[in-house]
């Protein structure tokens, strides 16, 4: 199935979990995740099943004003 991770298309197997998506981009801690504009707590990464066309945001700390 097709998912978007940080606006880049990825193909993942049906039934893939969020942790699979994070592994696909080799996400480096620290980061936080949202799917379809909803925050996903870290504790749920292994339980969160992805769906076709899910929009996943993986964001990390940067400088800010």
């Amino acid at each position: 199935m097709r998912v978007m991770i940080n606006q880049i298309e990825h193909q993942l197997p049906q039934g893939a979990k969020l942790e699979n998506a994070l592994a696909a981009i080799q996400a480096q801690a620290p980061f936080a995740v949202a799917i379809n504009l909803q925050f996903i707590p870290k504790s749920l990464y292994g339980q969160c099943t992805l769906a076709e066309n899910d929009q996943i945001e993986v964001i990390s700390p940067v400088t800010g004003g």
Binding site: N6, Q7, F31, V58, I59, P61, V62, T63, G64, G65
Partner: peptide
């Protein structure tokens, strides 16, 4: 102040 951006984007 700090912020959050897509990993690897900046």
């Amino acid at each position: 102040t700090v912020s959050l951006r897509r990993q690897g984007a900046t």
